[in-house]
């Protein structure tokens, strides 16, 4: 697992910064996002009020394949899949139904899927790509930062480009020079805004 190289919370109230560091850590851990973060800088100033999170993500190369969450067993005339978790069950079934047709796919219970009379071997089934986490990472990150930002900060602006993101939230209208402030936070991490 990759480590977070840089993680700082900047706030005019030192105790507030400490609490927000804990909150950020808890939320990112809960959402299973901490392993994706390479660098993260958060700036909160309740006086303005403003919340800015800027960060760089690790390159996400992992694809979720059937073998990652299911044991595939070839039996006489059928292939039985025993799932260890349900998270990717729906997208997997969708792929199977489209590829093999409804008559060949059977789900006997929550954790068991049987493919009957299909012309592929078990190895091929194991290699089928079911999901690409990088597609949803942006959505997940924004949701996480909505939880982290102080409540009532409903005016938001966010961007995710080339593995870098920023999230700005405030209770009031965002000022026109917000881009410069975001840029200065990227600079603190030794990065530039994409």
């Amino acid at each position: 697992m990759h480590a977070v190289e840089y993680f700082e919370v900047e706030c005019p109230e030192p105790l507030g910064a400490e609490y927000y560091k804990k909150i950020t850590n808890d939320v990112l851990l809960d959402h299973n996002l901490i392993r994706m973060i390479h660098k993260l800088h958060i700036y909160v100033d309740p006086g303005v009020p403003i919340f800015i999170a800027v960060g760089v993500l690790h390159k996400i190369t992992t694809l979720i394949r059937v073998r990652d969450f299911a044991a595939v067993n070839a039996l006489a005339g059928k292939i039985m899949l025993v799932l260890s978790e349900e998270t990717y069950l729906a997208p997997m079934l969708k792929i199977f139904l489209a590829r093999f047709g409804q008559d060949h796919v059977e789900q006997s219970d929550r954790f068991t899927v049987i493919l009957r009379d299909v012309s592929v071997d078990a190895r091929e089934i194991e290699d089928i790509v079911v999901a690409d986490p990088s597609e949803s990472v942006y959505k997940d990150l924004i949701y996480a930062f909505k939880c982290i930002a102080p409540e009532g900060f409903r005016i938001r602006r966010e961007q995710y480009t080339k593995g870098k993101f920023f999230f700005v939230a405030s209770e009031d209208t965002l000022s026109a020079d917000i881009g410069a402030l975001v840029q200065s936070k990227f600079a603190k991490m030794g990065e530039s805004m994409p």
Binding site: E13, L15, G16, Y19, Y20, P46, P49, P150
Partner: peptide
């Protein structure tokens, strides 16, 4: 009695 549970910032 009422317990008010507020946030983390003095300013707020």
């Amino acid at each position: 009695l009422a317990i008010y549970l507020l946030g983390n910032f003095e300013n707020c």
